[in-house]
Amino acid sequence: MTDIAAAVSPSAETTALPSRLAQGFISRLVIIIPYLWLLFFFLVPFIIVFKISLSQTAISMPPYTPVLDFADGISGFLAGFRELNFDNYTWLTQDALYFNAYVTSVIIAGISTVLTLIVGYPIAYGMARAPASVRPTLLMLVILPFWTSFLIRVYAWIGILKPEGLLNQVLLATGIISQPLIILNTYTAIFIGIVYSYLPFMVLPLYSSLEKMDYSLIEAAKDLGCPPTSAFWKITFPLSLPGVIAGCLLVFIPAVGEFVIPDLLGGSQTLMIGKTLWNEFFANRDWPVSSAVAVILLLLLIVPIMFFQRAQARAQEQDK
């Protein structure tokens, strides 16, 4: 009778098979969704922009000649593929304006990233060492500027930095200066705007790394006679490097292509690639050249993005 019951009843493996299939489907779905997101919102737009960069300017709507069009069938597509040229990319190498714009953007973004790190690291360190009951409030204060429009916050800095603005009024009233400072429409104003706007992107990764650090290591270093400064550079800073790398990349990457801050705070003479790109698209209506500028900018930023992904992978491995 026992043998008959065992033969009739389903085995444990047969019962667990559907559940394993369901778990496998869910795990694949979790992986597929981000890839679909990247496909539709990154890869497809990039292909469209790259396709426009291979076309030529035309007085029409849209203002470029169609390339790689399937309207004439496969034969027409292959004929158009053979006629493709990279004249727009060659033009970028011949005009010093674009090269100077790329170099200036990288320099401004690099200096702004360093300044943001100098300002953000003490803030993140103080938040990590604060009592646990106070940390949520401090995090909310860091994120609080995001509740206001980015454009409004940049416009507010115009009222602060202009010659008759709030900053000069305070400095004149306290006797620190005898005449108004010229800050607006300078690179100093751009640095102030970028540091202010992207400071949370630096503070949050740094706070995440510093909060997880074992501070008993600092106490052990002090017991062994290590000065506080040496303990910081030998223990605290190396352990926070994943947060430093993540924060620097989160600031540097969008700062390279920044347009609003240079346009409003830097004035008309500021040369950055984001502003050059906007002028090509909307002022000159040269979509093919502007698309080539955008493609090269994206390729230049792929390397920092790869470093950022590696930093995230290392941070996850440390958590495990």
Rank of each mutant, 00 (worst) to 15 (best):
L301V: 03
I182H: 14
L54H: 03
M1G: 09
M127L: 05
R153G: 13
I253P: 01
K275W: 06
V203L: 08
T270Y: 04
A96D: 15
M140Q: 10
S208L: 11
A311W: 00
V8D: 10
L241E: 07
K212P: 05
A315Q: 12
L181V: 03
G274N: 09
I33F: 05
I26A: 15
P63N: 03
L92E: 02
E13I: 07
R129N: 11
K222P: 12
K320Q: 06
W37V: 13
D3Q: 14
G24N: 14
Q56D: 14
L298Q: 01
F81A: 03
P18R: 01
A109G: 04
R310I: 05
N168H: 01
A231C: 06
P10M: 14
G267V: 12
L241A: 06
T2D: 12
I183H: 01
D223C: 08
V195K: 03
P227D: 03
S291C: 05
I190C: 00
L117C: 04
P304V: 05
T270S: 05
A132Q: 15
F191P: 00
W37H: 15
S9T: 15
P131F: 14
I74F: 00
K320A: 07
Y125V: 04
P228D: 05
S240A: 11
F146I: 10
F25G: 10
I118N: 09
K212R: 13
L78G: 00
S133F: 11
Y98S: 11
